[in-house]
Design a protein around this nucleic acid. Structure first.
Length: 496
RNA sequence: GGCGACGUGGCCAAGUGGCAAGGCAAGGGUCUGCAAAACCCUGACCACGGGUUCGAAUCCCGUCGUCGCCUCCA
């Protein structure tokens, strides 16, 4: 079986064959850091994190680069408005985005190049493009000459003439052709600038990516990714620049994720209809966003709504239920039941891979996990022990991990004080001296120890049919974040 | 105006020629003192209209609708 990837360039799903067997070079366009990032940016990073994780699961060694555009017009405008140094403002937002990536459980890229750190390479490239006749300098700016590129438009599948016809571009007199784009921009007084053969200035947006790719990954890469709003002009221009110099196909597979939608429109900074990553993670687990993305095709738009978020959160909980321990008092399941579980667990990885091999069909892959969860839960209900459940749970854990999901329930290192206080206050309400004494003895333990003692006391109270008191214990533990669940063989608890 | 994507049960969504995965929600049930969790059961003929085919959600044509790109944008 081979991995197939939908290539924007050919508009087809193709078998994935990297340039170097066993190795993959992947470049993903990161954000322009002039403001708080929103969950649309997060979506892109998550999509390619899933791609990267799956490639590694498939045995590829992945060299992954994601850039930060840390100098451009918007950054300069923002900084001027705020009275801050542009590069300082960019630095702040880079740090913030890096923190978001960690929270979202996105694996660190191999390199995080920044435009401002690539200036020499950019100047060299721009010079090379002038030498080759693909670019020209004009009053301190340098423009790429689109008519010098025979197949300009091949990625976005449009012809120069067509673009011309509908172009709403204010024609710049210095450009030979309206679609020519800036490789180098002359600096206005007060703007960040670097010396160049064309005078002080800064790089145009598109050239930085080409320079970074060439320098960090090589003239040809396997996968180039980003949001589908970058197809034109950004990626189109990257191809033009890069191939004009290298005369080789720039990227073998162009992957583009769909846009996050909110209230019927693309979420974007310019429209202002956005939810920042900060806001999202303040009220949701980061993996909920990942679940939302996994549940659909990465190429399609994802509409954000409270209902979708809710469903993703519950789905995540459901996956986690598969990792729950055996029921209290479990004594083992019938061999036939265990054999079925084993067979399903063995088959799961194959089904999972088949799904993901089909252009990262994560929704289908997720379905495999849900099926496995159901069987694990059935087996648990049939009396399986922890040891009997473990092999299937290990498969669930591993495959969930390939998708970047953290299924293990958080083991909080909780403060024991509130639990000790609870145990103490309950002593007074418990008439049975032995139970009260046991609770008293437990107050010096750690949180988990006290909780265990509370549950133990509750078991005895329930045996005495003291329902009100046992419900009180359950309710008060719930307030402290502990979920108590009773079953035929006893009680168990977990952090809720 | 040009290019493209999409329209599947209440919601999200996979499937792209052979009798429609999965998740969420809802209803019923098992378990249970109650609760929770888990488990079991229940629902769609795939926007609409034509056509191709032995056979279409899946291919073709048309209509309606939604969205994206064509300007900065993940």
């Amino acid at each position: 079986m081979t991995l197939r990837i939908y290539n924007t360039l050919t508009r087809q799903s193709e078998s994935f064959e990297p340039l170097t067997p066993g190795q993959v070079s992947m470049y993903v366009c990161g954000p322009t850091v002039y403001d708080n990032a929103h969950i649309g940016h997060a979506m892109s990073s998550l999509v390619f994190d899933i791609v990267r994780r799956y490639l590694e699961y498939r045995g590829y060694q992945v060299r992954h680069a994601m850039n930060y555009t840390d100098v451009d017009d918007k950054i300069i405008v923002r900084a001027n408005d705020a009275g801050e140094e542009p590069l300082h403002l960019a630095e702040r937002y880079i740090e913030q985005y890096a923190q978001h990536l960690r929270e979202l459980n996105v694996l660190p890229a191999t390199v995080y190049p920044r435009a401002t750190e690539e200036i020499p390479a950019i100047i060299e490239m721009v010079g090379g493009l002038i030498d080759s006749g693909n670019a020209y300098a004009a009053e301190g700016d340098v423009y790429y000459r689109v008519e010098s590129d025979d197949d300009y438009g091949k990625l976005s599948h449009r012809k120069l003439e067509d673009m011309n016809a509908g172009a709403r571009i204010n024609v710049d007199e210095r450009k030979e052709h309206p679609m020519d784009f800036a490789l180098w921009k002359a600096a206005k007084p007060g703007e960040p600038a670097w010396d160049s053969p064309w005078g002080p200035g800064r790089p145009g947006w598109h050239i930085e990516c080409s320079a970074m790719v060439f320098r960090h990954l090589g003239e040809q890469i396997d996968i180039h990714g980003g949001g589908n709003d970058l197809i034109f002009p950004h990626h189109e221009n990257e191809i033009a620049q890069s191939e004009s110099l290298s005369h080789k196909p720039f990227a073998r597979y162009w992957m583009h994720n769909g846009m996050m939608q909110l209230s019927g429109e693309k979420m974007s900074k310019s429209l202002g209809n956005l939810i920042t990553i900060t806001d999202f993670v303040a009220s949701h687990e980061p993996d909920v966003l990942r679940m939302m993305i996994l549940n659909t095709s990465y190429r399609r738009p994802l509409t954000y709504s409270d209902e979708v978020v809710e469903a993703a959160g519950r789905g995540l909980e459901r996956l986690r239920s598969g990792l729950n321990p055996a029921l209290p008092g479990a004594s083992g399941a019938a061999t036939g039941v265990l054999a079925s579980l084993q067979a399903e667990a063995d088959a799961a990885a194959g089904k999972f891979t088949a799904a993901m091999d089909d252009d990262f069909n994560s929704a289908a892959a997720l379905a495999v996990l849900f099926d496995l969860v159901r069987l694990i839960n059935q087996t648990r209900d049939a009396g399986a022990t922890d040891a009997e459940l473990k092999p299937a749970q290990d498969v669930l854990r591993e495959l969930g991990g390939v998708l970047g999901l953290r299924l293990e329930r958080a083991q909080k290192d909780a403060d024991a004080a509130p639990f000790a206080a609870l145990a103490s206050s309950l002593q007074a309400e418990i008439s049975d001296a032995a139970i009260a004494a046991a609770l008293s003895a437990a107050t010096s333990l750690d949180a988990a120890g006290i909780i265990a003692a509370l549950l133990d006391a509750r078991v005895q109270l329930r045996a005495q049919k003291q329902w009100q008191l046992s419900d009180t214990i359950r309710d008060r533990l719930a307030v402290l974040g502990v979920v108590v669940e009773d079953s035929a063989g006893g009680s168990s608890w977990r952090w809720g």
